[in-house]
Design a protein around this nucleic acid. Structure first.
Lengths: 141, 141
DNA sequence: CTCTTATAGAAAATTATTTTCTATAACTAT
DNA sequence: ATAGTTATAGAAAATAATTTTCTATAAGAG
């Protein structure tokens, strides 16, 4: 976890009277630098593989908190909810449909416009494709 | 449900050895013309309000089937999975963040391109905003 | 119209998620 | 630093969401 993200999240927590603790840090340390869409279970397992012990409840609580804070996004893939950390100012996702790797894309060309009677408030653009590594693995590219 | 959609889905079902039945038709009749993101429970309730009786299991089975067929999309909103029917050739969604109304937008300006090592295979663009009706209801527009 | 087989839906089983509870640890004020 | 206050972690229990099982029924083929 980059220092600035940790500081940012710690400040956000404090504004709500919440505390930055070891389990939260351990979770964020892993989650904020994870590149793949993961289920809560997978996140816990991955973290435990690093010999770090936190509870599943903490994973759920952090995911809920980060979702509310707009710092995480959930995708329903094959009936499973999978999560990815979203840096504060990201706009696009590039998602590999094979390995579920996600890349954040920051530059946003879309302006505030009115479409078909709707005032645009926010937007998300998600591209689904094959990442370079999965391309290499393909027999029939 | 428009005739052409029903025919299209019936054909798709038959290709898999599945049958078009009264409960499936009742569900599709409602779901394919529903404009708002709904939970499975809500869909069932709405259908029952029309004095039509189908089971929750059928709702889940149809949603799973339509998701697989690419004819439905799920959004995780406030921790709830909400579904919307997607016509075969839609590309964009306009989603009202207040009432969860969804409009399909068909024209797609995005081409097959390679971005940051990813070959784009499909994409989705989801705009979140305030629909015209919710705009009218707002005190502070 | 008959026959074969997918189906609906109730109930049970399973899975995912949230809540409860209490010892512990984080921050505040001394 | 240290003591006091209160949010917290995480296990267990509770709940909610979803899937599976099972069998009478109905769809569609011939």
């Amino acid at each position: 976890m980059q220092k600035n993200i940790e500081t940012f999240i710690t400040d956000t927590l404090h504004k709500k009277g919440m505390r930055m603790t070891r389990p939260k840090k351990e979770f964020l340390d892993f989650f904020t630098s994870e590149e793949y869409l993961k289920t809560p279970q997978e996140l816990l397992e991955n973290i435990k593989q690093h010999n770090i012990n936190i509870g599943l409840t903490t994973v759920y609580r952090m995911l809920n908190y980060l979702m509310e804070a707009g710092l995480t996004k959930a995708y329903s893939i094959n009936g499973e909810l999978r999560y990815i950390f979203c840096p504060p100012d990201h706009h696009y996702h590039m998602i590999c449909v094979k390995c579920l790797r996600v890349k954040n894309i920051f530059d946003c060309p879309v302006k505030d416009v009115k479409v078909d009677g709707f005032k645009i408030q926010s937007h998300q653009v998600d591209f689904f494709g094959i990442c370079d590594e999965c391309s290499k693995k393909e027999v029939n590219k």
